[in-house]
Amino acid sequence: MTTPDVDPTIHLYAICDGAPEIPAVEGVDDAALEAHVLDGLTLVISRHDRAIAADEAALVRHAAAVDAVAAAGATLLPARYGRAFPDEAALDASLRERAAAIRAALEHVAGCVELGVRAADPKRQAPRPDAQPPNATAYMRARLADVQQLERVAAGIHEPLAAIARDSVRRLMTSGRLELTAAYLVSTGSVDRFRAAFDALAATHSELAMVCSGPWPPYSFATLEDRK
């Protein structure tokens, strides 16, 4: 039963290949997860009678629901938080617009998990414009050499890990110090090898703070706009 002042919405957690079992876990705002099947894909959704929250607790519940579906064995693309659909017709239309890219992405991530890597060097100091040598050309040369050095360090971390992965994305900030953020799509059978490679790199780069997170559902490989 609805009342005139409610605004029902559908929240999407993930798009799954085929018809996987949906675990009996609660999603955002304690709503039950439902399966909505369309054209051989299963959308994991929950229904709400008002806008859902945008706080950390809600984000964690969203992620936990996606984790539970993935843990039950589904090949899936996690959905980005913060979009709502007024009804199933709107959801179906939106899905059909991107069906080909979604199927290609599902095939790409099948059998894989995502592992995240961050590396940073908080102590490092970049060349400063007011440092010696005191002229613009010398500063620019020093800055360029500094950036190239950071890129070499980042490549030394990223490339051996990317060689183990089916796919990878990386973002490197070189504004004075190294901040490498990378995600790797790794087959479940290669996760231990990836972690061992990461541990070896972390031991080699004792000057860096390095963290390996995951396994995650393949969030970083479900951004359809990035697909070639």
Partner: peptide, 13 residues
């Protein structure tokens, strides 16, 4: 990941 990655269908923001 949850805010910046993942499938983004054209629902209402």
């Amino acid at each position: 990941r949850v805010l910046n990655k993942g499938v983004s269908l054209s629902g209402d923001i």
